[in-house]
Amino acid sequence: MFKSIRTGAVALAALAAVAAAPAWAADLTLKLGHLANEQNAWHKAAVKFGEELAARTDGRIAVEIYPNESLGKEMDLINGMQLGTADMTITGESLQNWAPMAALLAVPYAYKSLEHMDEVAGGEIGEQIKAQIVERARIRPIAYFARGPRNLTSNRPIAHPDDLDGLKMRVPNVPLFVDVWKALGAQPTPMAFSEVFTSLQNGAIGAQENPLALIRSANFNEVQSHVNLTQHVRSWIYLTISELAWNKLSDEDKAHVMDAAAAAQAYERELFLASLAEDRAYLEGKGMTFTEVDGAAYAAKAKDAVLANVNDEIKPIVEGLFAE
């Protein structure tokens, strides 16, 4: 009798556990890791992707999101996606380690405007880039997010490359950046980002270049008076899924993934445009002057240095983009 009562209690507990289980328990959970923090538009767009995919699949597919490199650094995640230990990430020109065409995501002066960049990323060249990434990296781009264009800050207006006049400026330790700014007439100095504020403050350098969001978050308005709208690097980054995870999906669910990705891309663009306007208003409110520049003169002077630094596979494409 005691055994019967005990068995009955276990059965009731099991039933209660089933009843307490969430109705939306997923058949498949995709792990999406990325480097941005929770306030970043990329993270918010990733959350949107997860919500849209869950809604479209009635909860059969869930997305677990790991910001702040909590699932691994960018290259670790790419390797993990190839091995099956991660499913998704947000990545860009780092993919050129496998697919040389991914270098096209961030070529100085290749894209004259956001609209021009959209035409490329969403057009035939963009399809070629994605196809090569799928083939060689075994990772599938399913949406792309625009990145804030890089602009030059200084303590005087620099509307034309002739105005650089040997200005000592910080650049990332990237040969392409060093050569381009040298060709433009500056004196580029590779330096860790963490050292830039102090170097501007003590006059070791007189300028630096970064997107508005970083100019704002680093408080460069405290040590620089001008933002010159050089917009010398326009770029995008992909929301990606591993081919291993993609191939597990039915055709119907692949369509749901792409629809959810399209919704996330549109949402991220709204956030992106709002942040550009907000960052500019903030920096102007802090006393920075925004200077329009002669973009054509900058591009013309940078062209040879850009072409000397891109690989032979993409050089004809870059030449074509400069000619547009």
Rank of each mutant, 00 (worst) to 15 (best):
Ile139Phe: 03
Asn219Ser: 12
Asp165Asn: 15
Ala106Leu: 13
Gln187Gly: 12
Leu30Lys: 12
Gly320Pro: 15
Gln96Ala: 10
Val134His: 09
Met169Arg: 09
Met81Thr: 13
Lys182Gly: 14
Glu222Gln: 15
Leu184Ile: 11
Thr153Asn: 09
Gln39Met: 01
Glu195Met: 05
Ala36Arg: 15
Phe290His: 13
Phe49Cys: 00
Lys31Phe: 11
Ala11Val: 02
Ala55Phe: 05
Arg140Lys: 14
Asp259Tyr: 10
Lys44Pro: 10
Gln39Asn: 15
Gln265Cys: 14
Tyr109Leu: 02
His256Trp: 10
Lys182Gln: 03
Gly72Cys: 01
Leu283Ala: 02
Val223Pro: 01
Asn155Pro: 13
Asn37Gly: 13
Ala296Met: 05
Ala55Tyr: 03
Ala54Val: 10
His34Lys: 04
Met258Asp: 00
Lys44Thr: 04
Lys3Phe: 11
Leu271Met: 14
Ala299Thr: 11
Leu53Tyr: 05
Asn97Lys: 12
Thr198Val: 07
Ile142Gln: 07
Pro67Thr: 01
Gly148Arg: 06
Ser242Leu: 00
Thr230Lys: 15
Thr57Asp: 04
Pro190Arg: 05
Ala260Met: 03
Met191Phe: 15
Asn79Met: 10
Pro316Gly: 00
Ala305Leu: 03
Val63Trp: 07
Thr189Ala: 11
Met101Ser: 13
Val223Met: 06
Trp246Thr: 00
Gln231Glu: 12
Glu69Val: 00
Met75Asn: 06
Lys31Cys: 08
Phe290Asp: 10
Pro190Ala: 02
Ala255Gly: 05
Pro161Glu: 04
Val310Ser: 10
Asn228Asp: 06
Val257Ser: 09
Met117Asn: 14
Glu319Gln: 15
Val63Cys: 04
Leu239Val: 01
Trp246Asp: 02
Asp279His: 08
Ala21Trp: 11
Asp251Cys: 13
Leu15Ile: 13
Val134Ser: 08
Thr89Gln: 09
Met81Pro: 11
Gln39Phe: 07
Val227Cys: 03
Met81Arg: 11
Val107Phe: 12
Glu278Tyr: 00
Phe177Val: 08
Gly50Glu: 06
Lys303Trp: 14
Leu152Ala: 03
Ala9Tyr: 04
Ala110Leu: 13
Arg147Phe: 09
Gly122Met: 07
Leu176Ile: 05
Val180Ile: 02
Asn173Ile: 03
Thr189Asp: 14
Val178Asp: 05
Ala55Met: 07
Ile142Leu: 08
Val293Tyr: 08
